[in-house]
Amino acid sequence: MTVTHNVDFRAGQNAKDYTVPGLEVSTGHKIAEQLQKQLHDLNELHLTLKHAHWNVEGPNFIGVHEMLDPQIELVRGYADEIAERIVALGVAAVGVPGAIVKNRNHEDYALGFASTIDHLSALDDVYTRVIESYRESIAMTGEVDPISEDILIGHTAELEKFQWFMRAHLER
């Protein structure tokens, strides 16, 4: 028997009547909803990176395989940092798989066993999507919440560096 739970985690149903000092409650909750996009992206990214780590093959296998693990760990830490900021802003952080799938507008990572070049090319596209989303959130938070903005800027700098690592492998 399969049981499904369709829990709606929007801020209105899963929010406290507080946020961080210096912000209006409605503003803090709006920022939390924006940060939820990054949480979904980060949770999906760390799973996708691990998937590629397991399934990469061919020349440069070991270099790519070993390059991905530190990225995975850092991305998992970023997810935790974003989730904690969401909760500090007074909104429940949503980390369930169904919410990731429900709230995305892109397809699953399509590669299984594939060459290092194919995986790195596909991961380059994933990183571009995640970084573009981060930059949108930086623009939104920067006007009202420099703390969230600072967290996002720090993550973006490292995500861009990871993307550069992959792109360096793609150069011929």
Rank of each mutant, 00 (worst) to 15 (best):
residue 106 H to C: 09
residue 65 H to W: 09
residue 12 G to H: 13
residue 125 D to R: 15
residue 33 E to P: 01
residue 165 F to V: 01
residue 39 L to W: 04
residue 152 L to G: 01
residue 161 K to T: 08
residue 150 D to Q: 13
residue 10 R to A: 06
residue 63 G to L: 04
residue 64 V to E: 02
residue 44 E to N: 10
residue 77 G to N: 07
residue 139 A to R: 12
residue 104 R to E: 06
residue 158 E to M: 13
residue 7 V to K: 12
residue 25 V to P: 05
residue 114 A to N: 03
residue 81 E to L: 10
residue 95 G to N: 04
residue 171 E to G: 09
residue 106 H to R: 15
residue 17 D to Y: 08
residue 8 D to T: 09
residue 160 E to P: 02
residue 104 R to I: 03
residue 159 L to K: 01
residue 103 N to Q: 11
residue 25 V to C: 06
residue 157 A to T: 10
residue 160 E to T: 06
residue 32 A to S: 04
residue 54 W to T: 00
residue 96 V to E: 15
residue 170 L to M: 07
residue 93 A to L: 10
residue 4 T to E: 11
residue 53 H to E: 00
residue 22 G to T: 05
residue 14 N to F: 15
residue 119 H to S: 01
residue 88 A to L: 07
residue 129 R to N: 09
residue 73 E to G: 13
residue 153 I to L: 08
residue 109 Y to H: 05
residue 65 H to S: 02
residue 141 T to S: 14
residue 38 Q to A: 11
residue 56 V to E: 01
residue 52 A to P: 00
residue 25 V to M: 08
residue 119 H to G: 00
residue 115 S to E: 07
residue 27 T to D: 12
residue 62 I to D: 14
residue 62 I to Q: 15
residue 157 A to Y: 12
residue 60 N to Q: 14
residue 32 A to K: 04
residue 162 F to L: 03
residue 9 F to T: 10
residue 36 Q to H: 07
residue 98 G to N: 10
residue 124 D to Q: 14
residue 57 E to S: 05
residue 107 E to V: 13
residue 111 L to F: 08
residue 162 F to G: 01
residue 146 P to E: 13
residue 167 R to C: 02
residue 62 I to W: 15
residue 132 E to P: 05
residue 136 E to T: 12
residue 138 I to N: 07
residue 32 A to V: 02
residue 116 T to W: 11
residue 25 V to L: 08
residue 96 V to D: 15
residue 149 E to C: 12
residue 99 A to C: 05
residue 143 E to P: 07
residue 47 L to C: 08
residue 120 L to A: 09
residue 86 I to E: 01
residue 34 Q to R: 14
residue 24 E to I: 07
residue 92 A to L: 11
residue 31 I to R: 06
residue 122 A to T: 06
residue 108 D to A: 13
residue 146 P to N: 15
residue 68 L to H: 05
residue 122 A to I: 05
residue 168 A to R: 09
residue 136 E to Y: 11
residue 131 I to W: 10
residue 65 H to Q: 04
residue 108 D to M: 11
residue 140 M to F: 15
residue 156 T to I: 02
residue 72 I to M: 06
residue 148 S to L: 08
residue 81 E to W: 09
residue 95 G to T: 03
residue 39 L to A: 01
residue 78 Y to M: 07
residue 33 E to T: 13
residue 7 V to S: 11
residue 164 W to F: 04
residue 75 V to L: 06
residue 130 V to W: 11
residue 14 N to S: 12
residue 154 G to R: 02
residue 71 Q to F: 14
residue 52 A to R: 00
residue 72 I to A: 03
residue 31 I to L: 10
residue 152 L to P: 00
residue 159 L to D: 00
residue 72 I to G: 03
residue 172 R to F: 10
residue 41 D to I: 05
residue 116 T to K: 07
residue 6 N to V: 13
residue 158 E to P: 00
residue 29 H to W: 11
residue 115 S to K: 06
residue 153 I to H: 08
residue 43 N to M: 12
residue 80 D to H: 09
residue 129 R to L: 15
residue 20 V to N: 04
residue 145 D to I: 03
residue 22 G to E: 05
residue 67 M to N: 06
residue 169 H to W: 11
residue 130 V to K: 05
residue 66 E to P: 00
residue 150 D to M: 08
residue 59 P to M: 14
residue 122 A to E: 10
residue 156 T to G: 02
residue 94 V to F: 07
residue 117 I to L: 13
